[in-house]
């Protein structure tokens, strides 16, 4: 069966087939979750923000004119929601009282299997500074173009490129530091 495009799904949701929104949720939940997990470093918060972002996007669909791709538009909602969460006072207080989950949950595994290799690369990307890892995740894992990433993060194309270049350098440094280069490369 032919896979519906984002635009077709949006049109069907707007014409009354609300349940079709689940297709968009399934399509984007995994990607957006990774982004939010990097921002919040907490599964519970990432899930909460992602859920809110989908609900927000659903009610904002009538205003989506299609000037940008749905993915860019949605990522922007997710990024802003994540940003609001991590800059809120309540979140900062919560963070001070608890330890982040990521290191415990995703340690580098010394196994050469493809699955572990992929997870380890994700883990290493997560060790980069927030903006760098967000750019890496969106570029390599989610397949967004540099222009789209710039639109999501509110950066110029040139700045986005610079961040990507620096991220690659930092990642190479990390690989050497973690002594995982042999496993990953």
């Amino acid at each position: 069966m032919k896979e519906l495009s984002d635009r077709e799904i949006i049109d069907s949701v707007l014409s009354g087939k609300k349940e079709n929104f689940t297709i968009l949720v399934k399509r984007y939940e995994k990607r957006a979750y990774s982004l939010l997990f990097r921002m919040t470093r907490n599964h519970e918060d990432a899930e909460e923000v992602l859920q809110d972002s989908f609900v927000k996007a659903y009610f904002a669909l009538p205003g989506f004119k299609g000037e940008a791709k749905f993915s860019t538009w949605f990522y922007r909602i997710v990024y802003n929601a994540g940003l609001s969460m991590v800059t809120s006072k309540a979140y900062k207080m919560k963070q001070q009282m608890s330890s982040p989950e990521s290191e415990e949950a995703f340690g580098v595994e010394n196994s050469g299997s493809v699955d572990n290799k992929n997870k380890n690369l994700y883990f290493l990307m997560n060790q980069l500074p927030v903006k760098n890892s967000l750019v890496m995740i969106m570029y390599y894992i989610d397949g967004l173009s540099l222009k789209e990433i710039g639109e999501v993060l509110g950066l110029s194309l040139q700045n986005t490129k610079v961040i990507l270049y620096r991220s690659r350098e930092k990642l190479k440094e990390l690989l050497t530091k973690e002594e995982t280069a042999e496993i990953l490369l």
């Binding site: 939940e29 995994k30 979750y33 990774s34 997990f37 290799k117 883990f123 990307m125 390599y140 990953l184």
Partner: peptide
């Protein structure tokens, strides 16, 4: 290799 990297999460929201 980075292009092959995958999301380790499976949220079901």
């Amino acid at each position: 290799n980075l292009k092959l990297a995958d999301h380790p999460f499976e949220p079901n929201l």
